[in-house]
Design a binder for these strands. Sequence first.
DNA 1: ACAACATGTTCACTATTAGTAACAGATGGA
DNA 2: TCCATCTGTTACTAATAGTGAACATGTTGT
Lengths: 224, 224
Amino acid sequence: MSTLQTLDRGIRALEVVAARPSGISVADLSAEIGVARAIGYRLVATLEEHRLLMRDTDGKLHLGASIPALASQYWPGLLSLATPILQDLADKTNATAFMSVAEGDEAVAVLSLDPAVASVLRVGYRVGSRHPLALAAAGIAILAARAPSEADTPEVVEARRQGYCITRGQLQAGAVGVAAPLRLAGTLHGGPEASIGLVALQDFDSEAASDPVVEAARKISATQ
Amino acid sequence: MSTLQTLDRGIRALEVVAARPSGISVADLSAEIGVARAIGYRLVATLEEHRLLMRDTDGKLHLGASIPALASQYWPGLLSLATPILQDLADKTNATAFMSVAEGDEAVAVLSLDPAVASVLRVGYRVGSRHPLALAAAGIAILAARAPSEADTPEVVEARRQGYCITRGQLQAGAVGVAAPLRLAGTLHGGPEASIGLVALQDFDSEAASDPVVEAARKISATQ
DNA sequence: ACAACATGTTCACTATTAGTAACAGATGGA
DNA sequence: TCCATCTGTTACTAATAGTGAACATGTTGT
């Protein structure tokens, strides 16, 4: 299964630009992905044509407006449907609300919303971050939605019984997570395995939060 | 200014997959972008490696989890900062709230949020849709934030005076739009020209909505 | 079981792209 | 002002990628 050098470099260019909040010049970008400057210009010209990249007034590169446009088509309707519900969940519990999906044996965060009224300290959950399915609440909730298996850990069995999962300090010391699985496959055509939940500092009353999380998961699953 | 065929085709592959909510096979994708099937497989393999594409249980292609991850880095913090404020604006006015940015002489929608409590009829504003800056509220608000110019239309002058802009039926008969400019350039390092606003059906009291829109724009601009 | 079809890989030849170096024009500091 | 540095572009050969067909290997329906 071979891959294409030019396309690979173009994508890496996108990733490098994305990782540079203050923008990057074509020369620096070219150095970063290890190609001659002349090639960097050709990559950038192609990406600009599709509006995946744009330039600021200093000529530095930033992600273009086609990026959010593509993202709005990610499992169509899923993110925009979940946003108001997760925002409400975040506001009511004063914790960060997230949605994760399974990709291979990892859970990936695809949406993360902070409460409108920010508190002083906050655990962020970066969209795009990945961890093994079995490791933390987001992944365990997804495993709990699968058919029972010999390989299930006690945590997965417990999560399946309760309909939600609470973990403490598994991704980050001092943080707690609460998650419940979504049931999307029926309507989202071969759709993704997903979960939603909350992350917060350890003094958070995660038991009390499980009801709103399960309720939000039900709402999202039902609307699909 | 030359562009690269391979990268161009890879991006078009992404766009085609994005436009197919129910997924697409590699063969159909290859036909759609006009390449031999063998090349389609190489394009797809490269995109899958970067998790820009994934396959469902039927083998059909969908956008992968790296797409929302990239989008979360679009003018870092801008979308996630604006989301709770725009969601609140949408809920309180019972209209669709949006954010648009200028790209060249066009305004592009980069965020669109419906009220949590959906009404029967709704005007959607599709993320990624473009229109000339001078045409509708989102673009006129952006023009109003620029230095005054000879070329300004009366609408732009009026919007500059008021601090917001109301248009009726310019994008779509029967729809109204209210928008106010954001002031981001100072802090978002050469940042984008942007506006936020509301779109609704024509019976919407857009005059009454202008205050909350201006207030939301102030909040977003201040937090940057 | 069989035909009809779709997926995924491979092949040999042609078209694109990569790599290198060089060039003109802008910008900026001493 | 002059030199140093950055941007954007171009020319040329070695390396990749594209084409179109062929080939196994499943699936599906009859």
